[in-house]
């Protein structure tokens, strides 16, 4: 018998998003948080932790790859480098 799987997200420092760092096993959320602290922040890697039951994550499927992500590829106007800035304009 083993404990369920939890995914761990750590905020490396203030100002940054939580990032997925790995997973662990724990019987409940309280224990998962503590295990995450001991396992993933032994070297001061974080200032905040989220734990999520692995079964609670809904993921996009690789089969939907093209439908989900390909349409974004030609919308280059969403990126600032698409635009020409007239010479001489600063701070833009």
């Amino acid at each position: 018998m083993s404990w369920p799987l939890w995914e761990v997200f750590v905020r490396p420092r203030r100002g940054l998003n939580h990032q997925h760092v790995g997973s662990l096993h724990a019987a409940d959320a309280e224990q998962a948080l503590r295990n995450a602290r001991d396992l993933y922040t032994r070297r001061e890697e974080g200032v905040s932790i989220w734990v999520v039951p692995a079964t609670a994550i809904s993921a996009s499927s690789p089969e939907e790859r093209d439908a989900f992500f390909a349409p974004a590829a030609d919308k280059i106007y969403r990126h600032p480098t698409f635009y020409e800035v007239p010479e001489g304009a600063e701070h833009i």
């Binding site: 018998m1 083993s2 404990w3 724990a26 019987a27 409940d28 224990q31």
Partner: peptide, 15 residues
């Protein structure tokens, strides 16, 4: 460690 792991699971279920 089996009895310890079982205890944590049982506690979680109760909660």
């Amino acid at each position: 460690g089996a009895w310890v792991r079982e205890a944590a699971t049982a506690y979680a279920k109760k909660r």
